[in-house]
Design a protein around this nucleic acid. Sequence first.
DNA 1: ATACAAATGAACGAATTGAACGTTTTGAGT
DNA 2: ACTCAAAACGTTCAATTCGTTCATTTGTAT
Lengths: 306, 306
Amino acid sequence: MIDSFTPKQVAVALQVSESSVKRWCDQGAIRTDRTLGGHRRIPLPFLMEFLEATNRRLVDPSAIGLDPTDLVFGHGSSMRQKQSLVTEEPAMLTQFEKALLAGDESTCRKIVSNWFAMHGGITSLADNLLSAAFKSIGDRWQCGTVEIYQERRGCEICCQLIHELRRLLPEPPGNAPLAMGGTASGDQYQLPNQLAEIVFRENGWRTISLGTNIPFASLLSAARKHMPKVFWLSVSHIENIEQFVVDYNHFAKNLPKGVMLVLGGQALNEQVRPSLSYSAHCDSMLQLANLARSARGSLQPKAGHI
Amino acid sequence: MIDSFTPKQVAVALQVSESSVKRWCDQGAIRTDRTLGGHRRIPLPFLMEFLEATNRRLVDPSAIGLDPTDLVFGHGSSMRQKQSLVTEEPAMLTQFEKALLAGDESTCRKIVSNWFAMHGGITSLADNLLSAAFKSIGDRWQCGTVEIYQERRGCEICCQLIHELRRLLPEPPGNAPLAMGGTASGDQYQLPNQLAEIVFRENGWRTISLGTNIPFASLLSAARKHMPKVFWLSVSHIENIEQFVVDYNHFAKNLPKGVMLVLGGQALNEQVRPSLSYSAHCDSMLQLANLARSARGSLQPKAGHI
DNA sequence: ATACAAATGAACGAATTGAACGTTTTGAGT
DNA sequence: ACTCAAAACGTTCAATTCGTTCATTTGTAT
């Protein structure tokens, strides 16, 4: 996959004029590299940064090599006809779920990068594609029409893809606010935790993901050591509710002042939540993204000077 | 390791045309040596000089055998400090362990890509860097000088890096032999399983990683469905030995004929192994790589026609 | 509606880039 | 040492991009 693009390519992908792209580059709205001869080159991470900052979408992802073609029919023979790209969300979701269950990594990759490009961000990807797909797969599993290994293999694929996306995001600057988080003992679900991390990253935070299945004592220790501005806790599974509530509240109470505690996850239903004390709760990655944006702004009094 | 490159190699690594590289050489932008016959040779130091001067990075480091250190500078971060990386193995291991414990992802990335470049493969990386580091960290954890979250955060970082490496490997052709594997119920250790997968990939296999913590029944179901040539089982932790032995042997017995069962992992000590029936056991990724090579050759009777 | 400011998109000569091509050098095998 | 295919040489040339200017569209306050 190509790593950087010319203004013209970007212009086609965004469906704006080349002049505008060049101007945006020169204004600094799009960070830009230059060739030795002075030609502009726009690396993908910078483009993503711009998309996110301006809430834009790639109208034509194929212009920059994100190829949505033949998602329907796999690596076929010499198929001439480009099957009309499936770009409606429900159809993509169905295809994605199918590819996940089949273990078809490359198709999953295409759909994910396509979705990512079209919506310009990870938040929508997480809420509307990944979560939706696994929710549906989970339902099917309970019906017995899906094997455990299929669900798990799908997680593996998503884990890989998320790590690829994460690598595409620009490195956060050293003075960015710090978010830290993970899952507690007994919770092995990686995906939601990974997603939480890159949502923060996408919104300009430095992040430390502590991983899954970590005792509250060690979570606390990490928080005290690094003093993050936000601590996220992803809760997808609770083994022993009473124990969890006790341990959690002890953790929350001993968290240093100034650390904002954010909760999220399926397992936090109406029964559990009232027993917990926290700064914020998120039902979706969209909420988390909004929180990340506002917390970043409000808690950073150091107003930039340009 | 080679220390100077042709314009073509550099062109691929930078993802520009060969013409441009040649022109830059002639303009003096890249200092260049010449062979007696007049061919350009670009020593690594000169290339690095150029990258520094123009704030570039290698888009495809593998084109020049993956590259050492600070070429991997993120996008535009104006970090100038060159922290000279050591190149002797023991020192690198120490640095890596330190970086892992500190949660310093970018330093870990540098060391990993450096090691990968120097040894030209994942096998040595897995056995001599990653395994060694986590073994040492494990020891320190038992001594109480390392926190759980540090170890877990290190795993997260390695997981990310392995996925990045995996993405660098070429897609296996559709007719490549298939290897499949995972870990059984109760075993949550991802790293060894991931490493097993990319060792197969590196040696030209198609792979399906089923993930961790999967019941034997589902493993069996997956094997029957896809009929891999090799099934690997990574065993880093066993909760109940007797139960494991029973379930495992039932699994091994019912595995389709022609599927080679390969075992590996810390938890398979002298006590457990005699009770298990298997095709092969590997103490290291090197052994697994050798097995992958020989099994690939022997089981593919389709002799090339050249 | 009108006027004015700001942003967008088109046009143009000058400059850069990347592909093509015939010739020469390199490196591996005999 | 000799042979030969693969790769690199230097050069040319079409296509693309640069920076600039100017007409047009969009947004907003009078």
